[in-house]
Design a protein around this nucleic acid. Structure first.
Lengths: 190, 190
DNA sequence: CGCATTCCAGAACGTGTAGTCTAATTGGCA
DNA sequence: TGCCAATTAGACTACACGTTCTGGAATGCG
């Protein structure tokens, strides 16, 4: 290292995340990232091969953070606690949460897919997290139980969280009550 | 009328809807709409002032269809039946459902908002539907009850429906059971 | 039969995009 | 002090996009 770097990879990842969180995938143009970080576009391409590479890195980072918060609870077969854990995670990682949960991933990579290396890393993250999820509901493996658990642990809580996420507000106090009631009235193990 | 029209407004609306349903808002470019309908771009501009006008018309049409299917049930205070009615509606209107429920509306109009006329028409649809929703949960008006009901009637069922919507498949048989269980374990009137 | 009107048709324009290229700057090290 | 690789810097290219423009084709009416 012979010259001190003014910009790190994380600077660009953070900028891309918050731009997507605020204005959707198309808001994260290279020039918008450059403006937000104060870097010229050339410096971004010095760190990343392409725009998809930045978005892919951001996605993997946010996904790893999310699954890292939930996987231990799933392995302990605590479905309710895992669902509730989404709230403090989102409050502690507002940009990551809005980036990951608010916008549709298909729009992120529709123009060009992320580099194969990142795609493989994401595949590993996904299979590891899927294993945790299946461990939580084992021994059931039928489609209905899977869909039910996916709704109770992920999609339901995320739907409850979405209104406050899209307003960049912390989860309201009744969000936790809603999720708890959801699990009380409709247990994962039917 | 002096020359028979080869393309109608609905041709372009339908094309825009299915393009968005399949590939997100950015997939519905004017050239993509032109390709799908077989029309040159000039013919599209003969029917619509702008791209936002097409997307706005598509949105209003889909929203009107959706609320038209649910509002009567809400006025009869049948929250459970309204939530369940989303399934047959989505099965009967697969393109509209995927267009309306799968993708984030903020990405649709982020570049340029729809024409004021359409915006006002949508406002009217929204206030009318909100009145139906409030009639369903009256006399409660507190935030928690509103959020709870919104989740039970709309966001929850939509989250249950989303996986099959994004695969362009009809709702699986267990979707109705899931929604029914949701309302059985967690009634709107707490 | 030709005129007026409606519509089709697609080339052309300006803008904003992702990505490239070349040069200038920086700072540890011999 | 002078070298050299890492990094910044931003002009530049090629392209896709939304939109406009001009011309031609069709059809009801007099």
């Amino acid at each position: 290292m012979v010259r001190t770097a003014r910009f790190t990879e994380d600077d660009f990842i953070e900028a891309a995340m918050s731009l997507v969180a605020e204005g959707g995938p198309t808001a994260a143009t290279m020039q918008a990232i450059a403006r937000r970080t104060g870097a010229p576009t050339g410096s971004i391409y010095h760190r990343f091969d392409s725009r998809s590479a930045i978005l892919g890195a951001a996605w993997n980072s946010a996904y790893a953070s999310f699954t890292g918060a939930l996987a231990p609870l799933l392995h302990q077969r605590q479905a309710r606690e895992a669902a509730l854990a989404i709230l403090p995670w989102a409050e502690a990682n507002p940009r990551r949460a809005a980036f990951l949960l608010l916008h549709d991933p298909v729009s992120l990579f529709e123009d060009s897919p992320p580099p194969p290396t990142q795609r493989q890393a994401l595949d590993r993250l996904e299979t590891a997290f899927d294993a945790a999820f299946r461990a939580c509901i084992a021994p059931a493996t039928d489609d209905e139980t899977l869909a039910r658990a996916r709704f109770l642990i992920f999609d339901g809580p995320i739907a409850i969280l979405r209104p406050s996420l899209s307003r960049a507000l912390p989860p309201p106090p009744h969000a936790a009550r809603l999720i708890a009631d959801l699990h009380a009235g409709m247990p994962v193990a039917a």
